[in-house]
Design a protein around this nucleic acid. Structure first.
Length: 507
DNA sequence: CGGCTTTGACCCGCGC
DNA sequence: GCGCGGGTCAAAGCCG
């Protein structure tokens, strides 16, 4: 600990001070003794007067030295107190971090051994990130050594899927073994959006590597692989909705191991936030035996409502998985269509969600977030971040014109998490909201985001701010998103490529 | 010519 | 054990 050297130094200073404090008392006479012989030829009177003058001078110096030592001592005490306070804070934070890790691990074990929010990083990465030898932010900076390490991580977390699944079947005996031998199932983020183009313009570069006709859907499912980096493990599936072919269902999986263009941050921020909600919900609900996956959705809904801009109808949840592919993966859905599925409401909807049989066996909680948007293109969505990423409804947007103090209002909302109108499952909500609202980095990121929006920004800064938060969250292992901040726009070359757009998704 | 798409084959997990 | 379905591979073709 760094605390040790300081007290030692302080003690040394203190002891030195004491020495000097006492030393002069002897020092003066000693000097006098030494000087006396040389004064021998002088008369007693003159010697005495000289002695008194020097003695007085020494006393003055002594007083000054004592005064200085007092100041030094006081300063030393202040530093000590400061250090003690820092140590207490450090210990407190350490305990909090440990508690959070414990909660996450418990939740992960209970949810089918592990729920990896890999929109990001897998839980194994989380574990690695907790290792003091790893820098929290190395995900985005890949030195040759890091790249090597990254490859190892990918080897553990990525395809071949078959091996991954095999590993999952093995019993977990410990966290380390879990991370090393049983690569966790990846959390997927499913984005539903109305889109005329073959894929969402999410900012990343994709290469199609396969296409299949999935059962129950005449529209083929396309498989894309991220080409942002040769070894990037991120993949996505794109499929049209059965009920409304104008709705494009894009499922992201994996973690980018390379910097993302700014335009790609929009989706990254959104999905990471969704994954974060999923994690929070899972952590709180699964740690309570009485709560079922539905509670996760409720908690998320409440988190969403916490923004106060949320249209309460926008959030919906489903207790089952829409995609069969999600059977092996915890999935969270971001609905960017204008007509929320309303799985829990009575109204009919074109969304496939409400058609999911209740008996559909969910292996993982299926959490959905509806941002009430109709932006298929995340570039444009990006510019409407004030409405979407914050869940702000148009009504509220009117209510909070650009000149209003939306920033303060928002921060106040985060400062007072108990404001959401519909408060189901207070325990879950409290825990989930606490997790986010107590996070100062989130608040600051939000503040920056809002500031940029209010200041007339196009949302890019907002996204970047939120992405920064996401990265910070990664460092804590709360989620695994790797949305590296990059100021460079990716100048995609093949416009014909379905995913070559400059907007990106969060994986 | 390089990069991307297409598409049939193959692998694997899962349910019966 | 077998069939089904999801997911991936890789050769061939296409395109700028």
């Amino acid at each position: 600990m760094e605390a040790q050297p300081l007290p030692t130094t302080a003690d040394a200073v203190q002891s030195a001070g004491e020495d000097e404090e006492h030393a002069p008392k002897h020092k003066v006479p000693l000097m006098a003794d030494l000087e006396k012989p040389s004064m021998e030829p002088l008369s007693l009177a003159s010697a005495s007067s000289t002695w008194k003058e020097e003695d007085h001078e020494h006393e003055q110096r002594l007083k000054m030295a004592k005064g200085e030592m007092r100041e030094v001592k006081e300063e030393n005490q202040r530093l000590k107190r400061c250090l003690d306070q820092m140590m207490r804070d450090y210990e407190s934070l350490k305990r909090q971090f440990h508690d959070m890790s414990t909660i996450n691990n418990e939740a992960a074990e209970e949810v089918e051994d592990m729920v990896s929010l890999t929109l990001g990083r897998s839980s194994s990465d989380q574990n690695k990130n907790t290792c003091p030898e790893r820098k929290p932010d190395l995900q985005n900076i890949q030195s040759p050594a890091d790249s090597e390490q990254g490859k190892e991580e990918e080897a553990g977390q990525t395809w071949p899927p078959g091996k991954v699944l095999k590993g999952l079947a093995a019993p977990a005996t410990g966290e380390d073994e879990v991370s090393q031998q049983n690569p966790p199932k990846k959390t997927r983020v499913c984005v539903r959006a109305r889109c005329d183009t073959p894929t969402l313009n999410d900012g990343c570069q994709w290469r199609k590597y396969g296409q299949k006709i999935a059962k129950g859907n005449p529209c083929p499912r396309a498989y894309y692989r991220c080409t942002g980096a040769p070894s990037c493990p991120v993949r996505k599936q794109v499929q049209r909705s059965v009920d409304d072919i104008s709705i494009l269902i894009t499922t992201y999986e994996g973690t980018h191991n390379h910097p993302l263009p700014v335009s790609a941050m929009a989706m990254a921020s959104t999905t990471s936030a969704a994954a974060s909600m999923l994690l929070s919900g899972a952590s709180t609900s699964t740690s309570r035996p009485g709560l079922n996956p539905l509670a996760i959705g409720t908690a998320s809904a409440n988190l969403h409502g916490m923004n106060m801009y949320t249209n309460s109808k926008q959030f919906y949840l489903s207790n089952s998985s829409m995609l069969s592919s999600s059977l092996n993966h915890p999935t969270i859905t971001l609905d960017l269509t204008s007509n929320p599925p309303s799985a829990s409401s009575s109204s009919s909807s074109s969304s496939p969600f409400h058609k999911i049989p209740s008996t559909y066996p969910p292996k993982y909680p299926f959490t959905s977030l509806d941002f009430g948007s109709s932006q298929p293109n995340f570039m444009s969505w990006n510019t409407n971040i004030n409405k979407n990423v914050l869940g702000m409804s148009s009504d509220l947007a009117k209510q909070f014109p650009p000149h209003s103090n939306i920033y303060q209002a928002c921060l106040q909302q985060f400062a007072k998490p108990s404001t959401p109108p519909p408060p189901p499952l207070p325990d879950t909500i409290a825990a989930a909201t606490k997790a986010i609202t107590s996070d100062p980095s989130f608040q600051s990121a939000l503040a920056v985001a809002l500031s940029s929006i209010i200041g007339g920004g196009n949302g890019g800064e907002a996204v970047q701010a939120m992405s920064s938060y996401v990265q910070a969250a990664q460092g804590q292992g709360s989620m695994g998103f790797q949305a590296a901040p990059s100021l460079t726009y990716s100048t995609s070359k093949s416009p014909s490529s379905p995913g070559d757009s400059r907007d990106d998704d969060t994986k």
